[in-house]
């Protein structure tokens, strides 16, 4: 995985929301990269900065209410996204990087037919004429396996079911064959059987088009089955990252343990107490100079309340920000391992 080509490099990304109550630092100094053709998953609770990060990549946040700090750097194929002007951004969005939004019910335009919405991007970015675009749109609908595509091309979003609308969203996002697809909770609003179909569809597309996918989700099951690498976010920071296998079998951060053990395993006995994290995430309005998880952590030490831990590199891919990794820290057995036994 190391020698793969990096298609997106994000360094020091900071996103702040300016509210009446003050500045909410939603994303704090986040660094990561995405390789061509891989799936990178963001996981965390609501409000941890998953969506803020993914929208920042496409510069979808509007100043002055939301500010991407000047210290941030996002390089797409070596080109700085922060320095792009309006015209270049327009060409980037939907063409090279595109996004599937969370809620298929509200993110489609209710006054346009599905076909028009797919054609829009094709005509703008690939300069197709109406007829060609319509043909291509039809192909896209076939690819995402919408039944009876000729008829549904002229349907309005309200005439389609949730699963079909999500497929239309995917068709729009993939119409111009982007090299990065950001999928923000693509299956949260869907039933399990439809979710399985959509995920199969995405992984096939990934194979065929070599698209890199950034998957934002809070469903660990989806990640285990679908992602190559995982980044766990908490309070606007990445607290642990690694390959899917590393995160699920050798997690090192207490927050990751908590996430993994709060989901009931199918193989386990019924009605056992689930691990429930106490408290709530920290208020992002306040300055945070120590470990953000300290207040809810079972293994919290004095230093955790004073200083933010540095990222420790365990293997080439597995990194964790936790004071427990410090050579002088006590060796602890995770409650996640204990419960697995």
């Amino acid at each position: 995985m190391e020698n793969k080509e990096k298609i997106l490099e994000v360094e020091n990304l900071c996103v702040s929301f300016h509210t009446y109550a003050g500045e909410v630092k939603a994303v704090r100094n986040v660094n990561f990269h995405v390789n061509r053709g891989e799936t990178l998953a963001f996981v965390g609770e609501s409000g941890c900065g998953k969506t803020a990060t993914s929208k920042a990549i496409m510069r979808l946040w509007n100043p002055p209410f939301v500010e991407i700090k000047d210290c941030s750097s996002m390089k797409y194929n070596g080109e700085e996204i922060m320095d792009m002007d309006k015209k270049r951004l327009q060409a980037l969005r939907g063409n090279e990087i595109s996004m599937i939004f969370q809620d298929p019910m509200t993110s489609l335009n209710p006054t346009m037919t599905v076909g028009k919405q797919i054609m829009e991007g094709l005509m703008l970015h690939r300069h197709l004429n109406k007829e060609e675009a319509r043909k291509e749109a039809l192909n896209m609908l076939r690819m995402v396996k919408i039944p009876d595509p000729e008829k549904n091309l002229d349907a309005y979003p309200h005439q389609l079911s949730g699963g079909m609308r999500q497929r239309v969203m995917i068709a729009i996002a993939l119409a111009c064959e982007p090299s990065i697809l950001i999928a923000d909770e693509p299956t949260t609003a869907l039933d399990v059987t439809i979710q399985a179909q959509i995920l199969d569809l995405l992984s096939n597309l990934k194979k065929e088009m070599n698209t890199a996918i950034i998957l934002v989700t809070h469903d660990l099951g989806v990640i285990a089955n679908f992602a190559d690498r995982v980044q766990v976010m908490y309070a606007g920071q990445i607290v642990e990252r690694g390959t899917t296998q590393e995160i699920f079998t050798e997690a090192k951060h207490p927050y990751t343990w908590a996430l993994l053990s709060s989901v009931p395993a199918l193989a386990k006995e019924n009605k056992q107490e689930l691990y429930a994290l106490k408290g709530t995430p920290p208020d992002l309005l306040l300055p945070l100079n120590h470990c953000p998880f300290a207040a809810r952590c079972e293994y919290c030490m004095q230093i955790c309340k004073e200083q933010n831990p540095m990222e420790t590199e365990l293997t080439g891919t597995h990194k964790v920000s936790c004071w427990l990794q410090h050579p002088d820290a006590p060796k602890v057995e995770s409650f996640y391992d204990r419960r697995k036994k």
């Binding site: 399990v192 059987t193 979710q195 399985a196 179909q197 995920l199 199969d200 992984s203 469903d219 660990l220 099951g221 989806v222 285990a224 089955n225 679908f226 899917t244 296998q245 699920f248 079998t249 993994l260 989901v263 395993a265 199918l266 193989a267």
Partner: peptide, 19 residues
């Protein structure tokens, strides 16, 4: 079969006949 399982077996991704 459609439940995405969290128990990671390291075998990679399941391929089951979908509904």
């Amino acid at each position: 079969a459609a439940i995405p399982e969290v128990d990671f077996d390291g075998e990679g991704k399941k391929t089951i006949e979908r509904l």
